[in-house]
Write a protein that binds this DNA or RNA. Structure first.
Length: 595
RNA sequence: GACCCGAUAGCUCAGCUGGACAGAGCAGCGGCUUCCUAAGCCGUCGGUCGCAGGUUCGAAUCCUGUUCGGGUCGCCA
């Protein structure tokens, strides 16, 4: 087995898997050899990257292995050293030294640097040829389809910062999956059906004003919605009336249908403005109403399978001890969220033949998706396992969930505008002569908001804090853009063109090699971020590589006299910029050339 | 009441398939610009990893209990 491993195995992936490849191959080689030598069925070798500088580039905890194979530590360490020395991987290491219970390996930095640049050049030519998914694309998702449901705002409610999260997290995950070779179907499952329309129609008919709605549709509809809830507190009968209206809407009442259609249209127009600002696109805008005629077959099938039963006048599917029953049909015969989600799911399976169905929806709907999966499972469809709730934390205000019903929401458009305004002021302050200020301010502001959301693990709650959102120093979007812009500026000043003329031996110094190592992790980072549906993994990575560059830039002069050294440095920072720009694009941010 | 999620530096968070002295950013303090953009860099200060047990050679990481915060629990989505 070991002899089949080739030294330059890592180029096969062609997309920045350098460090990961070395680790996994080293692990495989050692495990195979140890198994054979000790006649064991299982030996686990851990290869990790130590945090301390004096501990080498990679290290292997030896005491663990010594215990497994039942030999003394020094003997085991010596054995491992010998195994590494005699393996095909040997040329990659400049030293292998035992220290404490660990075996510390130093990489041959020039060899690794060369490997990373080989990957980089492959990525560049791929991007140039317009192949794959651009720069450094992966193929782990080839032949597989993922449908991803995100944004999905509720019509006639404001586009809140809660929907912002779904929108930008979903967009980034879609980009990441596409990068990995998946066919991605982006679906905006508009909340354009449901009892809320009964409420709004009721409110509109009782105290609405056609002219006002025409003037300022979204705001007015929200006002009606909030007003309805305030009044309904005093007069609960209104809720019943709203449900009755929605039921009639489902039955096809023409007046209600006309109002519904109007509300839907004006709301959608408002959303489109936000999508444009965020540069978000969908493959489908089929909302809940689209499934209006597709629910009965689902209900029929549930009935045929004997899964549906009546309970207190409503139709439910019993999900056993662990989950509360799923309410499929209200006592008045009208449908519910889960009914429409089931219809949508089956439609998506038929239409797109997905291998994975993702739902980028808040934590608060965890139970809903557990129920959805459970119902599909009960119906006997094996693809219940392919349904995944990509949950995200609530947007809190003063530690509490925001509520539309009480009118406590922050409008996304306001947040974006505020961020854009702040970038404009900053530009005015730092670079007043900048050309195309307005456009650049927009790109900085919007990207700042996007990055602020994506940099933290999505499932954690998100305390809404506008000041925090538009901060431009430290771990922020502008920091990444600024880093990229700096590099561009340096390269332009010297009229740099990539020609692959790099002196790898110069890259062995610590300041260079930290960057090389980080670059060599890019592919693995994207893969992890995509498979874990965690854009924050990529976001943190980008912050790290940007910080490495800035640190490098603070210590080393790039425009040095020595041409060989200058070109090598320029190639290195060019590599950093391409990764930064590519990563930012994946997150849905905008890249810029100056700021 | 039941179930789910969270708790790491003053603040915002990484780290969580167990590994060598727990890391960033912000805030504070002290520096850096005759030279590639200071939206930056360097240094410094700062932590009983909520608490208590347990498993382990080794626990922020796994298990149990507990406290606090948030979410959810059939006719909203």
């Amino acid at each position: 087995m070991g002899s089949e491993v080739r030294i330059y195995f890592f180029y096969e992936k062609g997309c920045f898997y350098m460090i990961d490849s070395i680790k996994t191959n080293l692990k495989a080689v050692l495990e195979t050899a140890l198994r054979t030598a000790n006649d064991l069925s299982e030996v686990n070798v851990v290869v990790e990257e130590p945090k301390r500088a004096n501990q080498g580039d990679l290290s292997i905890p030896v005491f663990m292995i010594a215990k497994t194979i039942g030999k003394p530590l020094p003997e085991t360490a010596a054995h491992l050293q010998e195994l590494i020395r005699s393996s095909d991987l040997a040329p990659l290491f400049s030293s292998v030294a035992p220290l404490g219970g660990f075996l510390n390996l130093s990489l041959d930095k020039a060899a690794v640097a060369q490997g990373v640049f080989r990957d980089f050049e492959a990525a560049l030519s791929e991007a140039k040829a317009g192949e794959g998914n651009g720069f450094g694309s992966l193929s782990i998702g080839a032949g597989q389809t993922v449908v991803i449901d995100y944004s999905s705002p509720n019509i006639a409610k404001p586009f809140s910062v809660g929907h912002l999260r779904s929108t930008i997290i979903g967009q980034a995950i879609g980009n990441l999956l596409a990068k990995c070779g998946f066919r991605v179907v982006r679906i905006n499952h508009l909340g354009d059906w449901g009892t809320q329309f009964g409420k709004i129609i009721y409110a509109y008919k009782h105290f609405g004003d056609e002219e006002k709605v025409r003037q300022n549709p979204i705001n007015e509809l929200v006002k009606l919605y909030v007003e309805f809830h305030e009044m309904a507190k005093e007069n609960p009968a209104m809720e019943d009336e709203a449900r009755r209206i929605f039921n009639e809407l489902e039955q096809g009442n023409p007046e209600y249908l006309r109002l519904w259609s109007w509300f839907r249209e004006v709301s959608l127009e408002d959303y489109m403005k936000v999508y444009e600002l965020l540069d978000v696109r969908f493959d489908s805008y089929n909302g809940e109403a689209f499934y209006n005629d597709k629910m009965q077959p689902v209900i029929d099938q549930l009935a045929t399978q004997g899964l549906l039963k009546e309970d207190q006048g409503a139709m439910i599917v019993d999900l056993g001890e662990d989950l509360p029953p799923a309410l499929i049909q209200k006592s008045d015969g009208s449908t519910l969220y889960i009914t429409r989600d089931l219809a949508a799911l089956f439609f998506r399976k038929r239409e797109y033949h997905f291998d994975k169905a993702l739902y980028v929806v808040g934590n608060e709907q965890k139970l809903h998706f557990e129920q959805l999966k459970a119902v599909v499972r009960k119906m006997g469809f094996p693809f219940w396992k392919d349904i995944e709730h990509v949950n995200f934390g609530l947007v809190l205000q003063d530690g509490k969930k925001m509520s539309t019903r009480k009118g406590k929401v922050v409008r996304l458009a306001d947040v974006l505008n505020e961020a854009i305004e702040l970038s404009r002021q900053t530009i005015e302050d730092k670079n007043p002569d900048l050309e195309g200020k307005a456009e650049i301010a927009r790109k900085i502001g919007v990207s700042a908001v996007i990055f602020n959301d994506l940099k933290n693990y999505r499932a954690n709650d998100f305390e809404f804090n506008l000041e925090e959102m538009v901060k431009f120093e430290g771990q922020t979007g502008p920091y990444l853009q600024y880093t990229s812009v700096r590099i561009t500026s340096i390269l332009n000043a010297d009229d740099f063109h990539y020609d692959g003329n790099v002196d790898y031996s110069l890259l062995s110094q610590e300041v260079f090699f930290d960057i090389i190592k980080a670059a060599g992790d890019y592919g693995k980072t994207i893969e992890r971020a995509a498979l874990e549906a965690s854009p924050s993994i990529l976001a943190k990575y980008l912050l790290n590589i940007a910080s490495l560059f800035n640190s490098f830039y603070g210590r080393e002069r790039i425009a040095v006299e020595d041409l060989r050294e200058r070109r090598t440095k320029e190639h290195l920072i060019y590599l950093v910029r391409e990764i930064l720009d590519d990563g930012m694009r994946l997150l849905g941010m905008k890249t810029i050339e100056r700021m």
